[in-house]
Design a protein around this nucleic acid. Structure first.
Length: 412
RNA sequence: GCGCAGAUGGCGGAGUGGUCAAUCGCAUCUGACUGUAAAUCAGACGCCUUCGGGCUACGUAGGUUCAAAUCCUACUCUGCGCA
């Protein structure tokens, strides 16, 4: 394993938890970890420019293979010189493999299912599942993602055309897209699948991991400039999670292993960190661990303490567009990371002359009032989404900076 | 003044004898959002309720009918046309 495109240098290891601070060096710059990676699915972080993204302090962007494959197509991105070039983002980039879409466009579609279940409300999910699935009126034959042993048959969400994704295909597309860090093709299972299915799926994901690794190594040019992360699955089951962590961390081809690891899949919110704990007990410490699709600030803190280094999530950007912003809660003296959500569309903000968050250093808070934000949403003006996205991402950046400070100071 | 058309919930606008507290859209209020089919989606939206139901409503006032937002009469108002 020499001359890999990324390096991972640990700076501080916490004595109190599994947290660590480190730096991931990529061909396009450094990422100080723990870090939050904003999601720019279709090669744009929705509603903001790369300059805004840079100004608010973000260090990297994560895009999606499936979406970019369908539109504009990998050849167009390649012709521009890659993902970073086409979107005018000079920093590090990640691409997700499209494996998550096997879930989000498959069993989850239209059914109000997320990757989280709730063990606190047994039976609840099954009921809402049935009802909402019926309500969505999606015929089984029309489901836009169907999984078999070799890959996933996607029905384009744009024009209905059929596209078969295999691990090899996902990797080839990701090589064309040219992100610094790419992910193995996996299956994100629904939390509602029984253990038998989780088991079968895990075997499949493991086979796909090997194929992904082989496909990447085969392309020596791409291999030399792009790091590949393997993905651990296994749902909520201890044996499966541990088996997966062991398999993925030991997997090699021609003596070459993954450059880092993604932790994916479905959880119950209450025991997500238990699953992450099992996994990180096994994953090697000297490589970066990315917790896929997480999350909410409180979840990220837990993930950091369990030894995860990078995180991506649509929550800050999506919530911003739908009117919800994160605000630090300084009244909570016990939790230094306490925060609350404000829904700026609420009537109570229509004459609120204060900024989203008092003392916040973001562009939005320095220049605009809550009343203005409320007005923008009510009027359907897209600037509302833009300004709130700036605030929420700035919040995440500040949160991670604080997390790193706390770890370096030996307090986390 | 005459003729024609029309008056429905915050607004627009369906409904033309019972299944209408009244389709739908907008507005409003609230909630959701965790590897983005998401600048989206869901719920509430006359009043009261012990959530079974009860009450008041479709310009106003009468009338017909077992039953009226729907039919008849008068009135008020609005629009258009003619004087």
């Amino acid at each position: 394993m020499k001359d890999r495109p990324i390096t991972f240098s640990i700076k501080t290891r916490s004595q109190k938890s599994r947290a660590r601070t480190a730096v991931i060096k990529t061909p396009h710059g450094e990422i100080k970890t723990p870090a939050f990676i904003p999601v720019g699915t279709k090669s744009t972080v929705k509603s903001i420019t790369p300059e805004m993204l840079k100004d608010l302090g973000a260090e990297a962007v994560l895009s999606n293979t499936y979406h970019l494959y369908l539109q504009p197509g990998p050849e167009i991105i390649k012709a521009h010189g890659g993902l970073g070039k086409i979107m005018n983002w000079s920093g590090p980039t990640f691409t997700d493999s499209g494996g998550f879409q096997a879930f989000s466009l498959g069993v989850a579609l239209g059914k109000n299912i997320t990757k989280f279940t709730s063990s606190a409300r047994p039976g609840y999910d099954e009921i809402s599942l049935k009802e909402s699935g019926h309500k969505a009126g999606i015929e089984n034959a029309m489901i836009p993602a169907k999984i078999d042993e070799e890959g996933v048959m996607f029905r384009s969400i744009i024009d209905g055309s059929a596209h078969y994704f295999t691990p090899k295909k996902s990797i080839q597309i990701q090589q064309d897209l040219g992100a610094d860090i790419i992910f193995a093709f996996d299956e994100c299972t629904s939390p509602h699948e029984p253990i038998e299915y989780q088991k079968r799926s895990l075997d499949r994901t493991h086979r796909w991991a090997l194929e992904s690794l082989k496909s990447h190594i085969e392309n020596t040019e791409a291999f030399s400039r792009q790091a590949l992360f393997g993905i651990v699955q296994g749902g909520r089951h201890e044996d499966l999670r541990k088996e997966s962590a062991k398999f993925i961390s030991e997997l090699s081809h021609d003596g070459i292993e993954f450059d880092g690891y993604g932790i994916g899949g479905s959880f119950a919110k209450e025991d997500m960190m238990t699953a992450v704990h099992w996994v990180n007990s096994i994953l090697p410490e000297n490589k970066p661990r990315h917790l896929l699709g997480i999350g909410e600030p409180s979840d990220i803190i837990k993930g950091v303490m369990e030894g995860c280094d990078t995180f991506d999530c649509v929550m800050p950007t999506r919530n911003a567009r739908t009117g919800t912003v994160f605000v630090n809660d300084n009244t909570d003296t016990k939790d230094k990371f306490a925060y609350i959500n404000l829904n700026l569309k609420n009537a109570k903000y229509k004459d609120d002359m204060g900024p989203i968050e008092e003392g916040c250093g973001c562009y939005t808070c320095k220049n605009y009032t809550r009343a203005y934000m409320n007005h923008l949403y009510k009027a359907g003006e897209m600037l509302g989404g833009t300004l709130a996205t700036i605030h929420n991402l700035y919040f995440m950046v500040q949160l991670m900076e604080k997390v790193r400070r706390e770890i370096d100071a030996g307090r986390l």
